[in-house]
Amino acid sequence: MRRALRAVVLGGALHFKQESRNPFFLWIVICTPLVYATMAYFLFRGGQDDATLVTASLGSALMGIWSLTTTAAASTLGRQRRVGILELLVAAPTPFWLTIVPITLALAALGVYSLATGLIYVTVLFGVPVTIANPFAFCVSVLPMILSMGMLGFLFCAAFVRFRSSWMVGNLFEFPVWTLSGMLIPIAVLPVWVEPISWFVAPTWGMSALREAALGNASPWDDIGMCIALSVVYAAAGGALLRVFLRSALRRGTLALS
């Protein structure tokens, strides 16, 4: 247990530092909230309602986090394959999932840049005062939100271990999750049948937790609980998928070729 925790913490810190120096990743987490917050500002007609703009800035920040997680996590194994270390990582004594989880968690954790950018940008450029109604709950809700996004990234990473074009998956899920999870569009606007689907998408609860903590309209703790619960589900599903796919790849000798 301690060894697993050590692998996650040290691996996460290492990858966080490493990915913080990737210009493309930094571009995604910093510019996505800038562009979408600006777009929201214009579309919501120049901020007649501060609460809407605060929500939009939080939403655009989460869009940046998801964009990076889905793009980078889905292609994580592809990158390992390309640099020729995938087989070594699989053969290492550390369980393979313990190698992957820190990477996807670190990618989601880069989202703190996105969150900071979104809030500072809206405050400085548009003069919208960002007052957090419940600062303690807000800070607490950031962690499960990052955890849930990281674990969803892990699930994607595991699900596409057999595909050489796994990088493509990031593109596929970017807009659907943005749409489903109420980051910029209220879920009430979507068709009724969509809402139950959004319950299974952790960013929905992460967004809800941050919004409730920031605006103080309702308690964010239920949402935080849902984030943690879904993270466990994603981790279990991702671990199981990874096991099945890796066994299959090892049996066929297609790990590097798939």
């Binding site: 579309l43 919501f44 007609r45 749409t179 910029l184 569009i185 209220p186 606007v189 979507l190």
Partner: peptide, 8 residues
């Protein structure tokens, strides 16, 4: 849907 939400 963003357009529907914003009414623009």
């Amino acid at each position: 849907y963003l357009g529907r939400a914003t009414g623009i």
